[in-house]
Amino acid sequence: MKQKKILEVYQNNLVKISVRREWCKSCGICIEFCPKDVLVPDDQGKPIPKNIDACIKCGLCELRCPDFAITVEGVEGKDE
């Protein structure tokens, strides 16, 4: 059965962080190893980019997520 893609999107005018909640298994890896403490866990242990303004778009949360549940993009027109 094909799952509907439910994305929770957070953005400021530089960066857009999307969390695919039904794929996230709350492992905590993205939260712990973010170099700028951008992410905090919600009550289910899934990441919320509370400090999105500190994000340096290093992409490490996305690369280390074992479940392809978090992605980081530059915002169009504002990115390099």
């Binding site: 039904e22 298994k25 492992c27 690369l63 997520c65 074992p66 479940d67 392809f68």
Partner: peptide
């Protein structure tokens, strides 16, 4: 979502 346990390195 895949079958692997939370945090399993296989997905990485």
């Amino acid at each position: 979502p895949h079958i692997w346990c939370p945090g399993c390195g296989n997905g990485i």
